[in-house]
Design a binder for these strands. Structure first.
Length: 668
DNA sequence: GCTAACTGAGCA
DNA sequence: GCTCAGTTAGCG
């Protein structure tokens, strides 16, 4: 049955001969390498996907690369018979390795792209998240762009002097902001959790913190959730320190621009860095301050292995490099609250009196539907009064027109006949359409009761804009959400309907902010549903002008809404923390998930054993995979991370089926 | 992951 | 004694 042609003995001999020759050539080449005169050994961290190979390997530095193979340089080396990428960690006079060293195959570039402190940081992040340094470095160091590297450098940024008056203006109303800024300018490293008062020009405040740090001769690193925030802080930085001091590091800049700006930072020519989550790894020279804005935004959670959160990366970095730290936002996460409670960071906030002057928050109970809409009478009156002179922001939780549909008679959710995805209406005159596969279903009939009428239990931003337009004839209505996000709103009377995170900024602030359907985000079955709902409301409410009104439509019973009315994000976070401690949930406990093929997962859990103080919950099936949750008190968190890292190394070395480990998963 | 070295079955 | 497929250790 074999269809393999029999190899002729002569041919076979020839193949063997050529193999021998190749080996001989290789041996001669290795022997022909003249090692560098000083420090001929390079410790190389090789970019490999295997957990147990996350350690440096020694290579011989050929004399011609003596000056290029500097620590931090990208190299190519032969590893297990193939060419792989790596970074030089250090140069050594000799190796501990007993065998013969292979030479570096190529120094890709002498550019020092991997700073020593980033290696240390990557090690700490990998350890905490039970991942490998190679994975972390893939997030930390952008791909090389050779053309950009050859182009001339930007000039080194000249020193700036901080303007204490500008600092005081930007931080007005917050205590003790003055001494925090002074401490930064003085070369100190104060750590603070900052609750911004509503109406705060937070980009200006962050820019001043960066300017004061820069004035002390140090660099600053600012991490914000998305590119709209980057644009705002960019403008504020230009205002505060002028051009030529800062760069922006964002994923969407494109490979050339991204690498150009990264190089400006790596070369020490720019020492103020602003960016999104990956910027947390930027090799800022003389780093003095790290900042994260709105750390509750899920955009700060990296979706690629080992899934680090920008806040945790910056906390590790602040500790390692002894820098100042600022965790700022209108909302407060339970993690930030933990920093305050343990005394690791100080609190900066506005006193009650300032908050009362800035904003008045009230709740309008849904149910009194005077206008046949979702806007109760009380809210309607506020809007009408404000719309005489000012713009009004309306936050509505869902994008689209009618993002979910149900049978008008029996309330069965309407699903796609083809893929059973949820049906929606994209516009007032559109037929029902599947949100997943896009198939239209103009003749939908309820599978339960045969009825053909549909109702929309949840109203999207499109239909909300339509309703409000009818409610306030003659008032311009602007919509922002989904794939149509607007950065700014015009001043003057007008309605701006936006989904959470897509709220345009009004130059003079909104006269009023209306928060609709507050029941919807609170109903989510998620650990962070309430915290997240409050965060979104606070972020929208914060866009009011000084003395503005905020009206939330919902039930006054709810703690999250009460916290909004009192403008008390810290109190809410404290209460939430206490409840989570009771329920053995983060931040008092560290959670980790292990996911994989059921057999592999069982095997992994056996291998892991039962480390001290770790509860194993599950496993439970998730799709065709299986998942277990591990839980341990915060104090043992590091031990759990380490045990999981060790598990991955052992499994990788034994070539067992991979399981996915996620430490501190953002949702469960 | 990959390669190369090793192992033992099958055959002369 | 030799080849070859399958297995496995170790990667500098």
């Amino acid at each position: 049955m074999s269809d393999e042609p029999e190899m002729l003995p002569g041919l076979r001999a020839a193949v063997a001969d050529s193999k021998a020759k190749a080996a001989a050539t290789r041996a001669r080449k290795a022997a022909a390498v003249v090692p560098a005169a000083t420090d001929p050994v390079a410790q190389v961290l090789v970019d490999l996907p295997l957990a147990h190979l996350d350690r440096p390997f020694d290579y011989l530095v050929p004399a011609q690369h003596a000056d290029d193979a500097v620590p931090g340089a990208r190299v190519k080396v032969r590893f297990a018979g193939q060419d792989v990428d790596g970074f030089v960690l250090a140069r050594m006079p000799a190796s501990e390795h007993a065998g013969r060293l292979a030479p570096l195959r190529r120094v890709v570039s002498a550019e020092h792209v991997l700073a020593a402190e980033i290696v240390t940081l990557a090690g700490a992040v990998a350890e905490r998240y039970a991942g490998s340094r190679a994975d972390v470095l893939r997030l930390a160091v952008p791909p090389r762009h050779a053309t950009t590297e050859r182009q001339p450098s930007v000039p080194r940024d000249p020193p700036v002097t901080a303007d204490p008056d500008a600092g005081a203006r930007a931080w007005a109303g917050h205590e003790p902001a003055g001494s925090y800024l002074a401490h930064l300018a003085d070369g100190g490293s104060p750590r603070a959790v900052w609750s911004a008062a509503p109406g705060s020009d937070w980009p200006a405040a962050l820019a001043q913190a960066a300017a004061h740090t820069h004035a002390s001769g140090r660099g600053a690193l600012l991490v914000v959730p998305d590119h709209r925030d980057v644009a705002r802080v960019d403008a504020a930085l230009t205002e505060a320190v002028g051009e030529g001091h800062h760069v922006m590091l964002t994923a969407e800049a494109g490979p050339a621009a991204r690498y150009r700006d990264f190089l400006a930072v790596a070369r020490g020519h720019r020492r103020i860095v602003l960016g999104t989550r990956a910027a947390a790894f930027a090799p800022v020279h003389d780093l003095g301050l790290v900042v994260i804005w709105d750390d509750g935004d899920d955009l700060h959670a990296e979706p690629r292995a080992p899934y680090p959160h920008a806040r945790e990366v910056l906390l590790l970095r602040a500790e390692q490099q002894q820098t100042a730290l600022l965790v700022g936002g209108f909302a407060r996460t339970v993690e930030a609250q933990q920093l305050v409670r343990t005394g690791w960071a100080h609190e900066i906030a506005a006193p009650r009196s300032v908050l009362r002057e800035q904003v008045t928050v009230t709740i309008a109970e849904s149910g009194e539907r005077d206008h046949g809409t979702r806007v109760p009478r009380g809210a309607y009156d506020v809007l009408r009064a404000v719309l005489a002179t000012d713009p009004v922001l309306v936050q509505t939780p869902r994008a689209g027109y009618a993002p979910s549909l149900a049978c008008e008679r029996c309330r069965t959710p309407a699903r796609c006949g083809r893929c059973s995805g949820p049906l929606e209406l994209a516009g007032p005159a559109d037929p029902p359409r599947c949100r997943w596969c896009g198939a239209q279903d103009p003749a939908w009939t309820c599978p339960e009761c045969g009825h053909r009428g549909l109702r929309a239990p949840v109203v999207g931003e499109g239909r909300t804009a339509e309703e409000l337009g009818r409610m306030f004839p003659g008032v311009p209505v602007l919509s922002s959400g989904g794939d149509q996000v607007r950065a700014t709103a015009p001043d003057g009377p007008g309605l701006v309907v936006a989904t959470p995170g897509a709220e345009p900024v009004a130059t003079g602030g909104y006269g009023a902010v209306l928060l609709l359907d507050t029941w919807l985000p609170l109903g989510r079955a998620d650990l962070r549903a309430e915290e997240e709902a409050l965060r979104r409301w606070l972020n929208a409410a914060a866009l009011v002008r000084p003395g503005g009104r905020v009206v939330a439509v919902g039930s006054p019973e709810h703690h999250a809404l009460q916290a909004l009315v009192r403008w008390d994000p810290a109190g809410f976070a404290e209460r939430e923390s206490a409840q989570r401690t009771e329920a053995q949930l983060p931040p008092a406990y560290r959670l980790a998930t292990v996911t994989g093929d059921p057999g592999a997962l069982d095997d992994a859990l056996t291998l892991l054993g039962a480390p001290d103080g770790v509860d194993v919950l599950g496993p439970v099936p998730v799709g065709d995979e299986s998942r277990a949750v591990l839980r341990t008190p915060r104090a043992r968190g590091a031990a759990l991370s380490h045990a999981l890292g060790e598990l991955q190394r052992v499994r990788s070395a034994r070539k067992l089926d991979a399981v996915r480990v996620q430490v501190d998963p953002p949702t469960l």
